[in-house]
């Protein structure tokens, strides 16, 4: 496995039905996508379209009802430290200090105490968290918690990192910093990232490619390559290329959001409103 194992995610005709008391609910149907080794790929789509469902299947918490989900050619049989996951909700263990949280994965794989400590310290240093290593999570800000969460997930050296709207609860300023940190870590560690977000700017700014999903049952509506050069600078969000991508993505998502709401609202009646909104949005960005 070593040597060739580099974090290739392949999803083929993936379907997932939830069995509920009212019967089966088709959450995701026929999704095919891939993430190449070392690639940064985002998924955007209206809420309820099955983004978390897809990520949970990749993490190993759900078994596909149809299709295949593989990493480096191997079917996923359960959660594993090979696939790190970051949740939208803060998920640090409140009873462990920052360093103990980071050490957790290593402890589970039987790494000795001193070695654990050494590796955790190194990683915390890279993430600029050294001075907080003995703090308990409740003393940290939201951004700091997610930063520790990312470091914790990376500590075991996973091949891929799955992130489910990780910065959704953070303010705009903190979000920008977190995006920068995530980009840095990704480039340094050369792992594959699958990133779920509802923030279009975030998706464009971070990704090599973006998949847009349709409303339930979720399928892939389109795939967009982001040709912006790296390293990405915050000023790029004002470039015409960025704004063009943004406009395209917004209209794709708007269609789906309306469909997700039941589609009673006709597109035409919303057009004037939407253009207004977009103008306003841009004004605040500029």
């Amino acid at each position: 496995m070593a040597g060739t194992a580099r974090g290739l995610i392949e999803v083929q005709d993936f379907c997932l039905r939830y069995e509920t008391m009212e019967g089966a609910v088709e959450a995701v149907s026929d999704v095919s996508l891939n993430v190449q080794p070392g690639e940064f790929v985002s998924i955007v789509g209206p809420s309820g379209c099955g983004k978390s469902t897809l990520l949970n299947a990749l993490a190993g918490f759900l078994t596909p009802s149809g299709g295949t989900v593989t990493v480096d050619g191997e079917a996923i049989s359960g959660p594993s430290a090979d696939r790190g996951m970051i949740f939208q909700q803060y998920s640090l263990f409140p009873w462990k200090t920052v360093r103990e949280n980071v050490e957790f994965g290593l402890k589970m794989s039987g790494v000795s105490r001193s070695e654990r400590e050494r590796r955790a310290r190194t990683l915390l240093g890279l993430a600029g968290l050294t001075q907080f290593e003995n703090h308990y999570p409740d003393r940290l800000s939201g951004g700091m918690k997610q930063r520790v969460g990312i470091v914790r997930a990376l500590a075991t050296g996973p091949r891929i990192l799955l992130l489910d709207e990780p910065f959704g609860a953070l303010d705009a300023q903190t979000r920008l910093i977190m995006q920068q940190i995530l980009t840095n870590m990704w480039q340094r560690l050369k792992i594959s990232v699958l990133f779920v977000t509802h923030d279009i700017d975030e998706a464009i700014f971070l990704s090599d490619r973006i998949y847009v999903m349709t409303a339930r049952p979720g399928t892939i509506k389109s795939e967009i390559v982001v040709p912006l050069p790296r390293p990405r600078e915050p000023s790029m969000t004002l470039s015409s290329e960025f704004l063009g991508l943004r406009r395209g993505l917004m209209s794709l998502i708007r269609e789906e959001s309306i469909r997700a709401m039941g589609g009673e609202v006709s597109l035409d009646s919303l057009k004037g409103l939407a253009i207004n909104l977009e103008g306003q949005d841009l004004a605040t960005v500029l």
Partner: peptide, 15 residues
């Protein structure tokens, strides 16, 4: 018990 903590632990290799 917060289920997300349980899932986080499993993702980190906890049995």
């Amino acid at each position: 018990v917060d289920p997300v903590l349980v899932r986080a632990a499993r993702c980190l290799g906890a049995k």
